[in-house]
Design a binder for these strands. Structure first.
Length: 316
RNA sequence: GCCGAGGUAGCUCAGUGGUAGAGCGCGGCCCUGAAAAGGCCGGCGUGGGGGGUCCGAUUCCCUCCCUCGGCA
């Protein structure tokens, strides 16, 4: 078969570079983008927000000038944002990049965004702030176990999977049931993602745990050198959305500004929270068996890591 | 040097003559419209070293070492 025919039949590649915070995704992906003629698409729940440059470690201006970056700075920190919106935006970006004959390279640490993009999400809206708010109040008054009991009557499958203390998920499941009349466990079965249409390759960068934690400490320090204090001050002047307010550094520095803790204590807490976050990220990625793991050596440069990924993409 | 307090988990400490706990940390896991969020599970330990009493010692006794406070 002629080469061009074969190419027409082949699914187009969509690449993901994921990994725990501070592992070095940005630099590695940039190098890969150059080698591959690719464009970067952020896969990060915080980098979508404007004004959260330092706190979310966005790619710098110089890098963005050199390589096209997408899905950065697309929403105000005062607006709520979620996976579903992200997914819709990402799908559009993929088409756009492929239309230019470039390779979409997703880069980020938000495991849920990655999974939903690859595996899909159910179509029904099922989101209703009113219902959710009411359920939240109920769970505060009566306890999440009480709502869990109710959930096991309307959606036993979901109830079995959700722990009675996990208020968020219980509320979400009940919200969906009230809004759509259908159990969430049923809706979740009907999903279609990228994997149906594209040749999806996922690479998870990792480092020796001790080294990773060291890099996390260094990153927190460098955020302060770059002016984190001022950035967070201006963020706190706004009415932050629930998601944006969750960024590591917001609460810690708010407490410090309020005189509740010293700057050193705030920094130490940020480091600890980032470590815990990195651990959860790794757990998430570990269970995804499609992922190719890329262990980064001690002195390995981003371009070397990118070369290794290139080899895995095009085995001879 | 003397007097006093103390040496128990990575840290701060509790407790008991029958081989030890708590908080934090740390590790593992779950996750489908707030995900940098939220939830679950796990003690990870030659009880400062050595000796003695006792059926049995982390707990009682002796001794040595170390830390802290006071007096010199």
């Amino acid at each position: 078969m002629p080469r061009f025919c074969k190419q027409l039949l082949m699914k187009k590649k969509v690449i993901f570079i994921v990994g725990p915070t501070a592992v070095g995704k940005t630099a590695c992906a940039a190098s890969l983008a150059v080698k591959l003629k690719g464009e970067i698409v952020s896969c990060d729940s915080m980098q979508v927000y404007t004004g959260m440059d330092i706190i979310s470690s966005k790619a710098g201006k110089a890098l963005r000038k050199k390589i096209s970056h997408h899905l950065l700075d697309i929403v105000s920190v005062e607006k709520e944002y979620n996976v579903s919106q992200y997914r819709a935006a990402a799908l559009k970006v993929i088409k756009k990049i492929l239309a230019h004959d470039r390779v979409p390279i997703f880069v980020g640490g938000t495991g849920l965004y990655m999974t939903i993009l690859i595996d899909g999400i159910f179509k029904e809206k099922g989101e209703n702030p009113e219902i959710r708010g009411r359920l939240y109040e109920e769970s505060k008054k009566l306890g999440s176990a009480f709502l869990h009991e109710r959930l096991s009557k309307v959606d036993p499958d979901a109830a079995v999977k959700i722990h009675p203390n996990d208020a968020k998920r219980i509320i979400r499941a009940l919200e969906v049931f009230e809004a759509t009349g259908k159990p969430i466990s049923l809706l979740q079965k009907n999903r279609h993602g990228l994997a149906d249409t594209y040749d999806v390759r996922v690479f998870c960068l990792n480092k020796q745990r001790e080294k990773l934690y060291q890099r996390i400490d260094e990153r927190v320090e460098s955020m302060f050198d770059q002016g984190l204090i001022n950035e967070v001050r201006s963020l706190l002047a706004l009415k932050l959305s629930k998601t944006a307010a969750c960024a590591i550094g917001i609460k810690e520095l708010k407490d410090h500004f309020g005189g509740l803790c010293s700057l050193d204590e705030a920094k130490a807490l940020m480091k600890k929270n980032s470590r815990n976050y990195a651990k959860r990220q790794l757990t998430w990625f570990r269970k995804d068996k499609r992922i190719h793991w890329v262990e980064i050596g001690d002195d390995e440069k981003p371009s070397q890591v990118a070369s290794r990924i290139m080899k895995e993409l095009n085995p001879k």
